[in-house]
């Protein structure tokens, strides 16, 4: 993929025009949620239910879960929304496809950029977590790669699918009816252990639940190697599957 880099640089140069607004959002989101839900709701939770949450404060429990959820959201916006626009009305892909670039290179360059966006917005989030002191010391840094693969596990499969789509409404429907419920039932707000057996198994198989579990175990400094390996393998498998499918769907759309 020798020419994926210039594609990445193209996306980066577009981002230079809007980064200020996204930085504000990237900071405001975690701060507001950590204050409003973590501290505010935590105020009600912290009266004696520490055992359910593994003996940590509600903020410490909630923050890494929200980090994973926000990685998912950034990933979906970049992977679904941006790719839809690039393949459709914005015309970026059509313009790129008339150059010597191969569909695979256009795809790889854009995916690098998706990684950059997830990583940069999660880095801001992790900094906020560090300032709030909701992580176990330096362990907070370990959540960053975890958040990255969580975000990409959504961005890349989303891109592979969206490039086959012609209607924007589908993207919103998927977000509303699939991602939103996943966000609510992946252990971000409450512990999956509270759910009854069958439901618990089902919920922990959700990709976001894997990301939440991974980020949380690292943030609290309670990660075990097998668990980390298991969650990571799950997410990496999604990324790999996404890439393999996207190679086909990108070629079909860009060189029809």
């Amino acid at each position: 993929m020798p020419r994926a880099w210039p594609v990445f640089v193209y996306w980066l140069s577009l981002y230079r025009r809007t980064w200020r607004a996204t930085i504000v959002i990237s900071v405001a989101n975690p701060v507001l949620f950590l204050l409003g839900i973590g501290v505010g709701l935590g105020h009600l939770v912290n009266h004696g239910h520490a055992a359910t949450l593994g003996g940590v404060s509600y903020s410490a429990f909630f923050a890494p879960g929200l980090l994973a959820a926000s990685a998912m959201q950034t990933g979906y916006i970049e992977g679904a929304g941006r790719v839809f626009a690039a393949a459709g009305w914005a015309g970026s892909y059509r313009a790129a496809a008339t150059t010597p670039l191969e569909p695979g290179e256009i795809m790889a360059g854009h995916m690098l950029y998706m990684g950059f966006r997830v990583l940069s917005s999660c880095a801001v989030f992790v900094a906020v977590m560090a300032i709030f002191g909701v992580s176990a010391g330096w362990w907070v840094l370990a959540t960053l790669p975890a958040a990255l693969i969580t975000g990409l596990a959504f961005a890349i499969p989303a891109a592979a699918w969206v490039i086959t789509q012609r209607s924007m409404a589908r993207l919103q429907t998927l977000f509303r009816f699939l991602l939103m419920p996943m966000y609510m039932f992946s252990g971000t707000f409450f512990a999956l252990g509270q759910l009854p057996g069958g439901l618990r198994l089902l919920a922990s198989a959700l990709p976001l639940a894997q990301g939440v579990a991974l980020c949380r175990s690292l943030s609290l400094g309670r990660a075990s190697l097998p668990a980390v390996a298991g969650h990571s393998a799950y997410l990496l498998a999604l990324i790999l599957a996404g890439i393999l499918i996207a190679r086909v769907t990108y070629r079909r759309r860009l060189h029809p």
Partner: peptide, 29 residues
């Protein structure tokens, strides 16, 4: 009309996850 249903998804999810999920942690307020 699906948009009407869609506008109910988010509040319903909050009700379930925070109302019941976190509610189990909160107990009586």
């Amino acid at each position: 009309l699906t948009a009407v249903l869609a506008s109910l998804v988010e509040p319903t999810m909050y009700l379930l996850s925070v109302g019941f999920g976190v509610g189990a942690l909160v107990g009586r307020v």
